[in-house]
């Protein structure tokens, strides 16, 4: 956390302080405000993030720019520190909750302003499993990266996935599981897709705490994603490859 705290201390010491040492977000210039929002995201301060988003929008920032530069930029630092063992699950969840607050403001505006769309994903936790923390993080970060996400929620049978693929025609199917007892169900879904001859129509990404790369390969997924940031990068890479193939 040391790295992120420096900025807040710097701001507090130098010039942007109220008498009670509070940082007044609206008094910061754009660059300082974005830096401060990184800190606030890191500390899971939802109200401050919502305020920061509104200030940037008020200054004429496009919603997509607020999303990518302030929110996704901040969550990328959170994700990196989680991967490096500096932050733990509770802190990541608080940060995610803060980002969710900002996203709630931006989402309708993004739709109105026609932000770029990288691809579309259908995602859900598999049958027998009610855990959705990882899935929700992936959904949020995918949306932040410009993907349209259709979230099927928890406890999804193969029929639910197939119906959504048919109805939504996404580029990507994402499946999540937290339990070693439920993760084999991903293979059931993929095998059914193979039987129906639709497996290669989609990029299939899988994730969840007990999974690993070997499991992902064994069940016939395109990739195992160990966290939300990797999921975004993998999805972008596969979508780019797919679009290149289609244009070739």
């Amino acid at each position: 956390m040391g790295e992120r705290k420096k900025n807040a201390l710097f701001l507090a010491k130098d010039s942007f302080m109220a008498e009670d040492d509070e940082i007044i977000l609206s008094e910061l210039n754009d660059e300082e405000l974005v830096e401060q929002m990184f800190d606030d995201l890191y500390d899971g301060l939802k109200e401050e993030i919502e305020e920061g988003v509104n200030i940037l929008l008020g200054r004429g920032w496009a919603p997509y720019r607020v999303l990518t530069e302030a929110l996704v930029g901040g969550m990328t630092i959170v994700g990196k520190d989680f991967r490096d063992g500096i932050l733990f699950v509770p802190e990541v969840l608080l940060a995610a909750n803060a980002m969710k607050g900002g996203m709630a403001i931006l989402k309708p505006l993004l739709a109105e302003t026609g932000a770029p769309r990288v691809g579309k994903m259908v995602i859900g936790t598999v049958k027998g499993d009610i855990h959705d923390i990882g899935k929700n993080l992936v959904s949020m970060m995918m949306e932040g990266a410009g993907f349209e996400v259709v979230d099927l929620g928890i406890n999804n049978a193969v029929e639910a996935y197939l119906e959504a693929l048919e109805a939504e025609k996404p580029d990507i199917l994402g499946m999540s599981a937290l339990l070693t007892t439920t993760m084999p169900y991903m293979k059931t879904v993929i095998d059914t897709m193979v039987e129906m001859g639709i497996r290669d129509d989609y990029i299939v990404l899988v994730g969840g705490a007990p999974l690993n790369e070997e499991f992902g390969k064994a069940i016939g997924a395109d990739a195992y994603c160990r966290d939300a940031a990797v999921a975004v990068e993998t999805a972008k890479e596969f979508c780019a490859r797919r679009h290149n193939q289609m244009n070739a």
Binding site: G44, F88, V89, P90, E91, L93, L94, N97, I130, H131, D132, I133, I154
Partner: peptide, 18 residues
């Protein structure tokens, strides 16, 4: 370990479906 002693507001995120 789930941080619920420090952040009780996370309870719903962890156990909302239980």
């Amino acid at each position: 370990p789930l941080g619920l002693d420090r952040h009780p507001q996370l309870l719903e995120m962890y156990f909302g479906h239980y």
